[in-house]
Amino acid sequence: MLRSRSLLNLRRAARVTMLSAVAVSAAACGPIVFEDSTALPVEGTPPPPPEPEPEPEPPKRVEVREDKIVINEKIQFEFNKARILPESDSLLAEIAKVIKENPQIKKIRIEGHASSEGNDDYNLKLSQKRAEAVRKWLIERGGIPAEMLEAKGYGETRPIASNDTEEGREKNRRVEFTILEQEVTRKKVEIDPKTGEEKVVEEEKATAKAD
């Protein structure tokens, strides 16, 4: 009897001990809540400022386009006369420079045009004189061979804008440069199928004439 009681007590004690151990163990396995008191620092690198857009090139005053030498500025003449104003000297110098830089150009016609204001004959003569004044300037001051240049006045016969407005008439008063003859090079090329490089197999030079 006594023995069985002792055994029972031992079992109870063991059970209590184990329950306590489980309780302690459960508490030890509970979550741990924590927060860092100092923030993790991150330093970033801002992107470099964008490169400034390159300044657009100012439009060229003088350009060679197919059979024309286009001037994006007007040659200024004294009112009702064929005398070129000094402010146009730099423009004419640039025209001479462009002609020299393009040795393929062989012959140019300087064309004078007028608005419909005034007498037709007078306008025709004035535009002729103005074209000749430009030719003279290019030969004497620009160093262009005389045989390269011819001058022709068209008066009011070839308007490019309406003569009903001052703006249109101003556009019609102009000097144009038409390339009458220029040397062109025709090239026949073959593409190497292996390298993809172009190879000139035939080259022919010819003179193109405007109508």
Binding site: C29, P31, I32, V33, D36, A39, P41, G44
Partner: peptide, 17 residues
């Protein structure tokens, strides 16, 4: 690994160089 879950709070602070 830990025997217990961790319930964490962290902060990052961002500033340009």
């Amino acid at each position: 690994e830990d025997q217990r879950d961790g319930v964490a709070t962290f902060t990052w602070k961002f500033s340009p160089k």
